Amino acid sequence: MTPVRLWHCTFVHLLSLVRLLMSSDNRHTRIDFFKASAQLLPAQHPEAIAVPPALSSSLVGNTPESASKKLVPKRSRSPKDDTDHASSVKISKLSRISESKPSASTNITARRESPWEVYEKVLDLDLNGFVTVAQRKARRSGFVAVRAFPVAAAEKTLYMHGRVRHANIVEALDAFTTETSFFIVLEHMPFSLDQIVQCAKYPTEKQLAAILIQILDGLVFLEREGLEHGSLDCSNIVLSTEGDVKIANQQCCDKSLRNQEPRDVRALGIITMELMQKYTQDNGAVGVENLDRWPSDSDAVTFLSETTSAASARELREHALLQHDNQKEVLTGLIFVAEVTARRYYSCSA
């Protein structure tokens, strides 16, 4: 058989096979050539790599603890709310909010205008989700933090920021509504405990006490009000450069239930452990492993132990570790180290 005739026979057989595959009994069979060819391409193509927005960060100092420990996990970051763009959504709730009178517990009334008519953007800073650091246009006074909130949370957010007022809870200064957005203007607190945990220095027992005293004073207030935060973690505890420590995001607060496990107290145990050793235990236990830094009979360790059993923040506030005057000034050096060495995320697009 000549080569031409052999090729012809082979082609005929192949054509018959194709017709068989395309028959009614095989109509669902599909060969994905695009998929097959894609598998032959390099795993990464230069044009397929997404380039994130330009963010600047500094390296975190290495901790001397074992690398096998569970380091404090990177918390999920909320995307920046794009509230400057128009939307077709009409928000009837925001109209009611802007027309409401302030209650007895608050002097905040939501103004029906954009905050950017009053404030000038300076920087977008990641503090458990991006906030916009801004200054008032009329007079260049101190900085404020402008946070945008989901529309569905507008009413509760305004109410809780008005009701929950204490020296150790972030103060709400103003509120704004537009056709599509809701904003709260807050006092500017540029750091969170995330940066303290990530920084290259460990707190001393006095510094740890100065942090915990202020957190617990805020929690005791919430208990008296019949509230609990419910979402307490390092990212929700913020600091000023002068050493003020405050609970943030009071829109998370809700009515506490009787005979319920004190979630904020248990959360404070995790926060304390992260501050003391910069990582959490793999098995979820509360404790520290470096007994040279934190001796087992130290007030810090016994306090940490009591966070697992205390029935209230008020009970925990009586611990020996906290029976000193709050000297927030002892925190300024630690905060400076965090400012220099901890990773920060920000955007200059504001």
Rank of each mutant, 00 (worst) to 15 (best):
V4C: 05
C9K: 11
C9F: 13
H13M: 14
V18T: 11
M22Y: 09
S23P: 06
D25R: 14
T29L: 15
I31C: 06
F34V: 06
Q39N: 14
H45L: 15
H45R: 15
I49H: 04
P52C: 07
P64Y: 02
R75S: 10
D84E: 12
S98P: 10
S103E: 08
S105P: 00
I108V: 14
R111M: 10
N128P: 03
R136P: 00
A138K: 13
A138Y: 04
S141C: 11
F143L: 13
A152H: 11
A154W: 08
Y159L: 12
R165Q: 15
R165A: 10
V170W: 02
A172S: 12
V185L: 07
L186T: 00
V197A: 05
Q198E: 10
E205A: 05
Q207M: 06
L208T: 06
L219M: 14
H229Y: 02
Q250R: 11
D254V: 06
S256L: 14
D264H: 07
A267V: 01
L268F: 09
T272Y: 06
E274V: 05
Q281T: 10
N283W: 03
V286Q: 01
L304Q: 03
S305R: 13
S305D: 07
A320G: 05
A320I: 03
Q327P: 01
L331G: 07
